[in-house]
């Protein structure tokens, strides 16, 4: 299983509608609206890199998405 954070910058005023679309995308495990350099962080959980490409493709097609930056997780420590 491959996990990745996809950091997204949005056009102003498009976040609400975009989030609704993103929640429908397969393999999206978490979505956070954040304040700062990026507007949205999506955590994707996929079986292989091909599926990750599908997720980023679908995210880039969501209206209002300006740019995506993908951070693939190599190692993780977590409380949950």
């Amino acid at each position: 299983m491959i996990s990745a954070y996809i950091l997204i910058t949005m056009q102003p005023g498009k976040s609400d509608k975009a989030i609704k679309e993103m929640r429908q995308i397969d393999n999206v495990a978490k979505i956070s609206i954040i304040a700062g350099e990026y507007d949205i962080v999506v955590r994707a959980q996929v079986k292989n890199l091909e599926e990750l490409l599908d997720v980023t493709d679908k995210l880039q097609m969501v209206e209002g998405v300006n740019k995506t930056t993908t951070q693939i997780i190599e190692k993780e420590i977590s409380l949950q």
């Binding site: 996990s3 990745a4 954070y5 950091l7 930056t69 993908t70 951070q71 693939i72 997780i73 190599e74 190692k75 993780e76 420590i77 977590s78 409380l79 949950q80």
Partner: peptide
């Protein structure tokens, strides 16, 4: 990674490829 994890209040530490080394 271990030093980051030892900070109180940290719930996840991930080493990532790309623009940032840790999320």
């Amino acid at each position: 990674m271990q030093k980051l994890w030892n900070i109180r209040g940290v719930t996840h530490v991930t080493i990532t490829t790309g623009k940032y080394d840790f999320v």
